[in-house]
Amino acid sequence: MTRLKTHIERHVIGRLGWLRAAVLGANDGVLSTSSLIIGVASAQGTPHNILIAGVSGLVAGAMSMAAGEYVSVSSQADSENADLTRERKELHDDPAGELAELTQIYVSRGLNQRLSTEVATSLMAHDPLGAHARDELGLSTATAARPVQAALSSAAAFAVGAIVPVGIALIAPAHLLVASVSIASLVFLAVLGAVGARVGGAAMGIAAVRVTFWGAFAMAVTAGIGALFGTRV
């Protein structure tokens, strides 16, 4: 007897919520903290002040990322819940109209009228709200807003990214501090961009070049501003 093998597909869309927050947080952690350190160092800041600036940027940035992600994703979750509440009421008040609406969705996607009616009727009998959430509103469990997950991912990723420039600033000689922080941060940004692209199923090379270019640009601007003012912090 022939045995059927189960084919398991692994898609990246289920990772999008935490992946977006983690990549954004880590990039921001490296870039903002290294730029802050480079700016203070270029303004002739003392090693003590440079380290304080870096650690303060790490803590403040992680908290800011967590709060910002939580508020932003909570707003998305509120909108999704409002749509589901409205859809639930419509299903209760006009089930026939909702069945016709779902049927037309399948017709517009290429099914004939008879098959569309059969599919819509079956799905409405099984899980009417789920069917409308997925096919009318475009909502699914894989892409649902998760505020706490996004906040924790962003804060943790920011802290991990920020540790790199802070650690380099702690051990690098004063006359090599700017160069050391810049090089280490750009290398880490390139690796981070490549890893993020790999996990997300995108091209690694393009992502690495993109994040490295903008990282170098931001550091150069910050260093220029620090050198222009040249004030001891």
Rank of each mutant, 00 (worst) to 15 (best):
96 A>E: 10
140 S>K: 12
186 L>T: 07
46 T>C: 02
175 H>T: 09
166 V>E: 02
155 A>P: 01
142 A>W: 12
211 V>P: 00
82 A>I: 04
77 A>W: 07
189 L>Y: 05
29 G>M: 08
150 A>N: 13
233 V>Y: 14
159 A>E: 01
76 Q>Y: 06
231 T>A: 13
95 P>S: 05
202 A>T: 14
160 V>P: 00
138 G>D: 05
94 D>T: 06
119 V>A: 13
106 Y>R: 10
35 S>F: 00
70 Y>Q: 06
74 S>Q: 15
96 A>N: 06
191 V>Y: 05
33 T>F: 14
26 A>I: 14
138 G>E: 03
53 A>S: 14
57 G>K: 15
145 A>H: 10
216 A>R: 00
133 A>N: 04
89 K>C: 03
190 A>I: 12
184 A>I: 05
166 V>I: 10
211 V>A: 01
144 A>Y: 12
150 A>C: 08
209 V>Y: 12
152 L>R: 04
14 G>Y: 10
75 S>K: 11
49 N>E: 15
122 S>C: 07
205 G>L: 13
191 V>E: 04
205 G>F: 10
44 Q>Y: 04
105 I>Q: 03
78 D>K: 15
7 H>L: 11
126 H>I: 14
25 G>K: 05
140 S>I: 08
176 L>D: 14
119 V>I: 15
222 T>G: 00
113 Q>M: 14
49 N>D: 15
224 G>P: 03
179 A>Q: 12
3 R>K: 13
186 L>Y: 05
19 L>A: 14
227 A>K: 11
24 L>E: 15
100 A>G: 09
195 V>Q: 10
59 V>W: 00
62 A>Y: 02
217 F>Y: 01
116 S>W: 08
53 A>F: 02
232 R>F: 09
179 A>W: 08
165 P>C: 03
17 G>Y: 09
101 E>Y: 09
82 A>C: 01
197 A>L: 12
57 G>D: 15
173 P>V: 07
96 A>P: 00
74 S>G: 15
210 R>K: 13
148 V>Y: 12
101 E>V: 09
165 P>G: 02
187 V>Q: 03
154 S>Q: 03
169 A>D: 04
140 S>Q: 11
231 T>N: 13
230 G>L: 11
19 L>E: 04
208 A>C: 09
144 A>C: 12
186 L>E: 02
123 L>R: 07
178 V>K: 06
200 G>K: 10
180 S>N: 14
85 T>L: 11
39 G>E: 02
155 A>H: 08
154 S>T: 01
12 V>M: 10
97 G>W: 11
224 G>D: 01
84 L>W: 05
113 Q>N: 15
108 S>H: 11
63 M>D: 01
22 A>D: 11
85 T>E: 13
184 A>F: 10
19 L>P: 12
109 R>C: 03
13 I>F: 07
67 A>R: 00
24 L>A: 15
38 I>R: 05
212 T>Q: 03
192 L>R: 08
127 D>H: 06
35 S>M: 01
